[in-house]
Design a protein around this nucleic acid. Structure first.
Length: 595
RNA sequence: GGGGGUGUAGCUCAGUUGGUUAGAGCGAUCGCCUGUCACGCGAUAGGUCGAGGGUUCGAGUCCCUUCACUCCCGCCA
């Protein structure tokens, strides 16, 4: 490509171009002004080319004064660099362009943040001037990576026989799940559309419509609070759904897709080529979480039984256990020589998390087996042997103990598992550890009001032979519901769907929804399922999180082009914003709070 | 809604026990410099110490209130 702005881009010129006349356009990345000799690093999307001019040139005085990040067009001749001035850091480093003529194409004011710098900047400035921030090397490359990953995934899905369809953005509000973003309808005063939290019902309807395999890089909207791995407002999923499949069929497709993607875009080793399957129940016990980081070798054990023994004198825990608490522990290998401060810091940290802290001791065998540390003396030799049997502990290992009710216990042991592994430097950052979490319960109980609720997706198929499901014990019903986790990040969530209307009504009734309510709120779905619905299932991996892992970033905004801040504001575009009285009137909306 | 962290020059930060006129690097402006690639050297400008209140002879520093950003909990079927 050659036009009035450029004959080459800023990453193209090599030795073979020496002596040719070229035109380059780009941003002034950096100037090095020697007074009578000036170097300009010209940058575009593709790379950097060093351009040079000296005082013999009539343009010298003028070009010397130009601000960094000004866009200029340069005419010049490609010249060789002498051996001692070759720059191997850049692709064009063997040559440079001797400037003959130049023109300013876009002027630049004094910069609110430097583009040429690896420093980190306050988030609000970066977001307000995102167009400048995006010029910076690391994030520029992240966004390009994101584009390439999406293209790759799209190709893979096409090759696997999936068809890409768009689904509506303006749809109806649904009672389950996250808060909806609402859009008022002008033509239907008093009524609202909702932005889709995910194309869940639509993708099932696509299956009912007979399309067999669907995918979409789908925008999803949820009005919930942000986290470092969770954008407020909107994010993207690789939404996919397949007809006439069992759970394993979905697993095979997604495992292959993720393996191919992660191998192509990262050099990190994949720890398990065949993703291990962990039941939800096991995950909550062994890792305290349904998104365990399997790079972390620490395992949680339940040793509640120990505290029923008469030869254990740890009265605080024993009393709590009698009133229904449990005791779980984390074992650290060969930590007998760690300083007291190591243990106390972890206990202190646990207290800062709002818990009663972590007790600990080390297994010792001086004269005979004993527990060393503040609570070690409470355990008899026999009880220590029993603990060693239960946990696989050996002399020289230490053990951290937490005692609490189940939910709180899971939370603190999960956090402690991460914290201890970090302190002991046990996590290998050069690997990806995938796993499936399977056998989610269909329902869970809400502590605050003792109400039975869907634990994940109300459209999931319960496990077991339909005649044998015991609906009287809803908390025991498992679902064909699964998650993929990688390095402790929840990557996707999916299920084999319930395509049987009567079973759907039954499950909704357990969660407290009458048939009429289901008919009204899920009319499209439930109606469609009554007209010959195929068995089907799918999953929806989060695109942003996949790219975040591939780019080795800890924050999702580093792989999002124009993210909102934590308060769901776009500081560059000033969204959300107030609207005119006229707009509100047309929508039949009256604001309660007025200035 | 709750908890933690941060807030000092355009940017990144330092600022001791409360004590004189609040500093550095980068950037900006001006000058010198013909082989740099984080060029070098010299000078100048640039501050509501997030905001408000309080304690004190004296507050960037201590106390209270508040705001912004961020991390976490809740929330995210």
């Amino acid at each position: 490509m050659s036009n009035k702005y450029r004959t080459h881009n800023c990453n193209e010129l090599r030795k073979e171009h020496v002596d040719s006349d070229v035109v380059l356009s780009g941003w002034i990345n950096k100037k090095r002004d020697h007074g009578n000799l000036l170097f300009i690093d010209l940058r575009d999307n593709y790379g950097i080319t060093q351009c040079i001019i000296d005082k013999e040139n009539l343009n010298f005085k003028e070009i010397e004064k130009i601000q960094l990040e000004t866009v200029i067009r340069i005419e010049g001749k490609v010249v060789n660099r002498s051996n001692d001035t070759i720059n191997n850091e850049i692709k064009t480093g063997e040559v440079e362009v001797g400037i003959k003529n130049f023109k300013v194409l876009g002027t630049c004011k004094e910069l609110p943040l430097p583009v040429f710098s690896d420093q980190e900047y306050a988030e609000d400035i970066r977001l307000k001037y995102r167009f400048l921030d995006l010029r910076r090397k690391k994030i520029h490359e992240n966004i390009i990576l994101r584009s390439k990953v999406i293209t790759f995934i799209r190709n893979e899905m096409n090759n696997l026989g999936f068809l890409e369809f768009q689904t509506p953005i303006l749809t109806s509000s649904s009672p389950e799940g996250a808060r909806d973003f609402l859009v008022p309808s002008r033509l239907n005063p008093g009524k609202f559309y909702a932005l889709p939290q995910a194309p869940q019902q639509f993708k099932q309807l696509i299956m009912v419509s007979g399309f067999d395999k669907y995918f979409q890089i789908a925008p999803c909207f949820r009005d919930e609070d942000a986290r470092s791995d969770r954008s407020p407002g909107e994010f993207y999923q690789l939404d996919l759904e397949m007809s006439f499949v069992e759970q394993e069929d979905v697993f095979n497709v997604v495992e292959k897709l993720l393996l191919n993607t992660f191998k192509k875009f990262s050099n990190k080793k994949i720890l398990f080529e065949k993703f291990p399957k962990i039941t939800y129940k096991d995950a909550m016990l062994k890792y305290g979480s349904d998104k365990p980081d399997l790079r972390n070798p620490l395992i949680i054990n339940d040793i509640t039984g120990i505290f029923l023994r008469d030869d254990v004198k740890f009265e605080i825990f024993k009393k709590l256990v009698k009133s229904g608490s449990m005791v779980r522990c984390i074992l650290t290998k060969n930590t007998k020589d760690k300083p007291r401060s190591f243990f106390d810091n972890i206990d202190k940290w646990a207290k800062e998390q709002g818990t009663s802290g972590l007790a600990y001791f080390t297994f010792e065998n001086e004269k005979e087996l004993s527990g060393k540390g503040p609570v070690g003396k409470f355990f008899s030799k026999e009880s220590l042997e029993e603990i060693m049997k239960l946990t696989g502990a050996e002399v020289g290992d230490s053990i951290f103990l937490a005692c609490s009710k189940q939910k709180e216990l899971e939370k603190i042991t999960s956090l402690a598992r991460d914290k201890i592994a970090q302190d002991l430097n046990l996590i290998n950052n050069d690997v990806f550890a995938f796993c499936w979490i399977v056998d989610y319960p269909m329902f869970e109980i809400d502590d605050t009001n003792n109400k039975i609720e869907f634990s994940h997706n109300p459209f999931s198929m319960p496990q077991g032979n339909l005649e044998n499901i015991n609906f009287d014990k809803p908390l025991d019903i498992l679902a064909y519901q699964y998650d993929i986790v990688c390095n402790g990040v929840e990557l996707s969530s999916g299920a084999i769907r319930n395509h049987i209307p009567n079973l759907m009504y039954k499950l909704f009734s357990i969660a407290g929804y009458k048939k009429e309510v289901v008919d009204e709120k899920f009319s499209g779905m439930i109606n469609a399922l009554s007209y010959g619905a195929p068995p089907h299932g799918g999953i929806a991996p989060g695109i942003d999180r996949i790219v975040m892992l591939l780019a080795d970033e800890k924050n999702i905004r580093e792989v999002t082009m124009f993210p909102m801040n934590q308060n769901a504001q776009d500081l560059m575009m000033n969204a959300p914003s107030e609207v005119s009285e006229k707009q509100l009137k047309e929508l039949d909306i009256y604001l309660k709070t007025k200035k």
